[in-house]
Computed example of a mutant assay.
Amino acid sequence: MKQTGILLTIMLGLNMTISAQQQTIHLWPGKVPGETAAKHAAMVTPDGSNNVKRLTDVTDPVLEVFPAPTGNSNDVGVIVNPGGGYNILAIDLEGYEIAAWLNKLGYTAFVLQYRVPKKEAGALQDAQRAIRLVRSRAAEWGLQPDKIGMMGFSAGGSLTARAATRYNVNTYTAVDKADSLSARPAFGILVYPAYLDQGANRTLTPELTLTEQTPPMFLFATADDPYGNSALVMAGALRDAKVPVELHFYAKGGHGYGLRSGNPAADAWPALLEQWLKTTVK
């Protein structure tokens, strides 16, 4: 009965989130760079295990906009990258449910449907384009252009790290005026990130280039997560590069829990992140 109540609460919250959604923004008005398949809506996979909706075959990347409630909004926007091994997107667990939580704190959320499966280069193009588009239209949602950050889970954490460290790399030909703006997120949030330790002897993934201009980051992971080393390696590299970083590394929690209650890690990270955002993004 307790589990049923938790799931019901999640679904009610998700329905409220969907009803609050105001806008879907297609990232690429014309041809999607490097994409050979025709544009179409993302496909829902038949795997609905653990009450997770999974999307794949994304050929027309979009941002789904979830404005903060009137009267409880600040000037900060957060682009949310769901995880899924660069194969699928756990769109509710690590997207819509996260957007609803951010809204309660006054943040406007943008859930990114980036390209999958196995389109890592395209995913980075989508992330860069998303940051620039939100920054170019920040006034529409009452946001400050220099307060657009990015948050990701698992592979979405990898994508967030890549966007935060490769923002000076031009990955596509400019489409419009938005592409003249910086692709640097104001901050990065990595919750149980993956694929950040693919260098020699499980060191930092070579494509992640850190400098003192890399944005501040918050990292959360657990020791029993098979990808837990990613957070440790990334935090150490950020520290060495003199980038402000906060790492929380808990004993148990595993991987892929989002913020659904009943998991010790899921119960812990939201309050820690809430405090970090208050002190970091001013």
Rank of each mutant, 00 (worst) to 15 (best):
T165F: 00
A161K: 01
L196S: 04
Q3W: 01
N263L: 13
W276E: 09
D240H: 11
A161V: 07
L204S: 08
L12E: 12
A268Y: 04
L210E: 02
D225C: 01
L143I: 13
N87G: 14
F220R: 01
S19T: 11
L247C: 14
S230T: 09
P61W: 00
G199L: 02
L219A: 05
G122Y: 09
P69S: 03
P185C: 04
R132H: 03
G157K: 00
A138Q: 02
A20P: 01
A231I: 05
K177T: 15
D267K: 10
L210W: 06
T56S: 13
P69M: 05
I18C: 04
E274H: 13
V62C: 15
S73V: 03
N51A: 06
N87P: 00
E207F: 15
V58H: 09
L277C: 12
G152V: 01
S49N: 08
G188Q: 15
G34Y: 11
D179R: 10
T108K: 03
D75I: 10
M43G: 00
Y107I: 07
R239F: 11
F220K: 00
V281T: 11
N168I: 01
Y250H: 07
V44R: 14
L219C: 05
L196P: 06
V116G: 00
A178E: 08
M150N: 12
S73P: 01
A100H: 14
L190F: 15
G256S: 08
T108G: 05
L102C: 06
N170F: 02
A100Q: 14
T173K: 11
K39G: 08
M11Y: 06
T70Q: 09
G142N: 09
I6C: 02
R166Q: 15
